[in-house]
Structure formats: C-alpha cells, structure tokens
Simulated scan of single mutants.
Amino acid sequence: MSLRKAEAVLARFGFDRYMLLLVLTVVLATVLPARGAAAVVLSHLTYWVIALLFFLYGAKLTTATIVAGLANWRLQLSVLALTFVLFPVLALALKPVSMLWLPAAVGVGFLYIGCMPSTVQSSIAFTAVSQGNVAGAVCAASISNLIGVILSPLLFATLIPQGSAYGIDPSAIWKIVQQILLPFALGQLCRPLLAGVLNRYRKPTMIVDRGSILLIVYAAFSAGVVNGIWQVISAGSLAILVALCLVLLGAVMGAAVLIGRAAGMNHADLMAVLYCGSTKSLATGLPMAGILFAGQDISLIILPLMLFHLLQLGVCAIIAQRMAGRLDLQPA
C-alpha cells in the first residue's frame, strides 16, 4: 500500500499527518529523550518558538474579522459559556472519578483541561469544512485564547483545592502574559507590514504552528521519560483516561448542539459553536503548563490534555467529513 493510500484510509477514521506526528513525537521522546545540556537548549528554543507562534497569530488576525465576529453575540457568548463555564464544571465533577484509578498529577491535568481556551487553527478548519461561520469561528477562538491567557490560570487556581501541591504562583500569570499575550499584541501592531507576506506564504506559518506544538510535546515528554512517567502510567490507566476524555468531549459536544438549537442558530453558527466550544488548545495549554507547573510532574499533568487533543481532532474530523458529505448531497 502506498503512503497516500495509507493516509487516505487513516483519514476516514480522523487520523491525519499531524496526529500521527504527535504520536511519533511521544515515541521519539520515549526512545531518545533530551537530557542534560540538550534539555536546557531545548527549553530556551521552545520559549522563543512559542513567542513566534503567538506573534504570527496576532499578525494574521484582521480587525474586520474581529468586528464581524463580535456582532454575532449569541455565537460568542455560547462559545465562552461552553469553554469557561460548562467545561470547568464537568472537569471538576469528573476529577474525583479520575483520581480513583489515576495518579494525582493526572487528575490535576484532567481539571486543567477544563480551564483551557478553545483551539484556533483546527476549530476554524473544521468549521470551514462543515460550511460553518468561519468569521465567527476565527473571532470566537481568538477571543477565547486572549481571555484565556488571564482567565485560565485564575480559573485553575480557583478550582484546585487549597493547600494542594499544584498551587499557582501569582507571578506565573505575568510570565504567561510575557510569552503569549505580548507577542500577540506585537503581531497585531506589525500586521500592516506582514499581512501580505503571511497571506502569500501560508505553509511556513502552518509549519511554525504545528512544529511548535511538536517541540513542546517532545520537551515535556522527554522530561517525563527521564523522571519515569511510563513506570507510573500503565496501559489500563491510559484506557481509563481515554474513556474519561471521551465522556467529557461527548458531554460538551452534546451541550453545544442543544445550546445552538435552543438559541435558534442557523447551520453556519451552530458549526462554529460546536467546534470552538468543544475543543481545547494544546498550543496555549502546553506553554502555560510549563510556566504554571515548573518543577512539578509536567508530563503527567499535560498527558490528559494531549490525549484530549488527539481525541478531539479525530472526532471533529469525522464529524466534519460526514457533515461536508451530507451538505454536498443536498440539492442546490
């Protein structure tokens, strides 16, 4: 079987190159983790790659898109309610269940999922494939991430038990602003100079986007392997974690559809709410975790978010493909 045919078969089940690269990155970190001086260099490189990523996000986002998206207040409020109200409540409810069978750090990571903002690239892509409101999705995902820079760590600090070993240092929020929000703002200021170049050369931007995530995953799991993560997590524990992530994802997706229909949204808006309201950002969550949980079991904490990210990509890809096929069959 050729590589293209193999990719086509995997695509039917929601697996694309990016998902396979994520899995291979974890395997690489397991077999060949960064140690010593290499780990230090990797840490510095990761910091600047993340800053570059959010600089490019800022440079790509047009003011017109923000204004058009904000005008649809039902869509925006629905996404924010799902992301920062329903998700944390459900994660908080499922956290005690997860801690019955999983290490404490993994249980904390499950709660961390609920506090994260929405994805940007994938939620917009799935909305476009499903013929949804792309402008609304761009605005909703971007606003979610901008708000999440401040709200996500504060929300997590509120939900985590007092006296927990995973408390947050207030100075971490300023570090997150420096690494994520300031580069984004600088990108917005530089947009008039860079917009044309970024529109012409989309592939390098995508490489930075996906490459930065792969780099963060490799760095985090390298540290985890050095500290014996796979001696702590068994195959049975992974299966339980996957099941809990699917329960969380399914519950929020169901709620997103119900909210959209109750609000009388058309198909385009409903698709934007579904994808933006039910997904969580790995690009924002990983660097934020590196700051919030410095010196702690980061690889165990981010493991639930990584698995959730892979599952949401697969499930959303399948839904988007079926939705696109169904719409193509409708008469013009």
Score class of each variant (00 low, 15 high):
Pro117Glu: 11
Ala104Cys: 09
Ala172Trp: 08
Gln188Leu: 15
Asn145Tyr: 12
Leu186Met: 13
Arg202Ala: 15
Ser142Lys: 01
Ser122Leu: 11
Tyr112Gly: 11
Pro153Gln: 03
Leu193Glu: 01
Gln179Val: 12
Val120Glu: 00
Val197Met: 11
Thr158Cys: 14
Leu181Ile: 09
Gln188Val: 12
Gln188Met: 14
Leu102Ile: 15
Ala135Arg: 10
Ser123Glu: 03
Phe184Asn: 01
Gln131Arg: 14
Asp169Ser: 08
Ala165His: 07
Asn145Lys: 13
Asp169Gly: 06
Gly163Asn: 09
Pro117Ala: 14
Asn133Thr: 09
Trp101Met: 14
Val134Arg: 01
Cys190Arg: 03
Ile124Phe: 01
Leu193Lys: 06
Pro117Cys: 11
Ala125Asn: 04
Ala157Val: 14
Ile168Leu: 09
Val106Cys: 05
Gln179Thr: 13
Leu193Val: 13
Ala137Val: 12
Leu189Asn: 06
Val177Trp: 03
Leu151Trp: 09
Arg202Ser: 11
Leu102Asn: 04
Gly109Glu: 06
Asn145Val: 12
Leu151Ala: 10
Thr205Tyr: 00
Val134Ser: 09
Ala185Trp: 08
Gly196Trp: 07
Ile173Cys: 04
Val138Tyr: 04
Gly148Thr: 11
Leu182Cys: 12
Phe110Ile: 05
Val120Cys: 00
Phe184Lys: 02
Gly167Met: 08
Gly136Thr: 09
Gly114Gln: 01
Met116Asn: 10
Leu146Tyr: 08
Ser123Leu: 06
Ala172Glu: 06
Met116Ser: 06
Pro153His: 07
Cys115Ala: 15
Ile168His: 01
Asn145Cys: 15
Ile113Lys: 03
Arg200Ala: 12
Gly167Ile: 10
Met206Tyr: 10
Thr205His: 00
Ala157Gly: 04
Ile124Pro: 03
Tyr112Val: 15
Ser164Val: 10
Val134Met: 04
Gly109Met: 15
Gly132Lys: 00
Ile180Thr: 06
Ser171Phe: 09
Phe126Pro: 03
Gln121Arg: 08
Val177Ser: 05
Val177Pro: 09
Ser122Met: 15
Phe156Gly: 05
Thr205Arg: 02
Ser123Asn: 08
Val106Met: 07
Leu194Met: 09
Ile176Met: 06
Ala165Glu: 13
Ile173Trp: 01
Ile147Ala: 13
Gln121Tyr: 07
Gln188Asp: 02
Ile176Ala: 06
Val129Gln: 04
Ala185Glu: 04
Leu146Ile: 15
Thr205Gln: 05
Gly187Gln: 01
Phe184Ser: 03
Pro192Arg: 09
Gln188Asn: 13
Gly136Ile: 07
Gly167Phe: 03
Gly148Cys: 09
Leu155Ile: 01
Ser142Met: 08
Asp169His: 08
Val134Tyr: 02
Trp101Gly: 10
Ile124Leu: 00
Lys175Tyr: 10
Ile124Lys: 00
Ala165Asp: 13
Arg200His: 12
Pro153Arg: 04
Gly114Val: 12
Leu159Thr: 10
Ala185Thr: 13
Gln131Val: 11
Gly132Val: 07
Ser118Val: 10
Leu100Asp: 01
Trp174His: 11
